[in-house]
Amino acid sequence: MGADFVQFSLTPILIGVFAAIACALPGNFLILRRQALIGDAISHVVLPGIVVAFLVTGAVSAMPMLLGAAGAAVLAVVLIELVKRIGGVEPGAAMGVVFTTLFAAGVLILEQSDTSSVHLDVEHALMGNLESLIWLRAEGWHSLLDVEALASLPPELPRMALTCLLITALMLVFWRWLKIATFDEGFAASLGIPAAAVGFALVIAAALSAVAAFDAVGSIIVIAMFVCPPAAARLMTQSLERQVIWSVAFATLSAVLGYVLAGYGPLWLGGADAVSAAGMIAVVSGVILGLACLFGPHRARVGAGAA
């Protein structure tokens, strides 16, 4: 656990943890609102936005890509509403149609355009490049106090940390609005709480997490973290407050364990190469969900017999 760890593993693990938490927090409320698919949809639709932003600016830089992703997310929300209204289909179907179409469009544009010179391809979009987000200038733990070394931190780290912090702060400030509006939207509105706006803001927050995380860790983690840690946490407790805390714990565990297993797991098994960290983090979160389903103390629907 010395200089090598700080140089090669610390930053990817931290980025993974921040990304996982930033997605898991809104995921708690999306799941309770039966809108888990929205997280999935958002993480798919940002691809064409990012690709178009790259084609317009000709560089892989953060700001245009984030704007492109945000634009695509807004476009998707509008398209989903249109399909729902004009087609008269249920929201889930409308989302399914729009996000797969936009994702496919993103893949097509990506393939047709010349992105060979930069690190932007379908694989990157799916799995991110967590392993490459290393801290080259670090020489050990003391580098954490070295201003010069800190300046060379991969920019994804502060960006993801800030996103995570912002999501956490918003959730804490508007906790009661979120809770009341998620449980009973009509009652919330009768109190004068802007319930519809709260629902919309939740989707925006989820989109923000997805876009920020997408760039660093790819869409697989984003999709997994919106659903798996909150769903597993729901099976551990009957209190919303504790559910959110459990989800943060599960998200952190998935990110750390997933990264370590991806790096060292194959070696322990006698293999030669490491496997994708993003893929392994998602797998770990899925395994945690599976274990929670089997052994979680509140896995049965408590109200099933009573009503």
Binding site: L32, R34, V173, F174, W175, R176, W177, K179, I180, T182, F183, D184, F187, L191, I193, R234, T237, Q238, S239, L240, R242, Q243, R301, V302, G303, A307
Partner: peptide, 22 residues
Amino acid sequence: DWDFPTTVLDVVRMGLYREAGL
């Protein structure tokens, strides 16, 4: 959705929101 993770007292507290605020 009565499967929502909360208790009876917690639901009643929602009626006190106006006084308690955020």
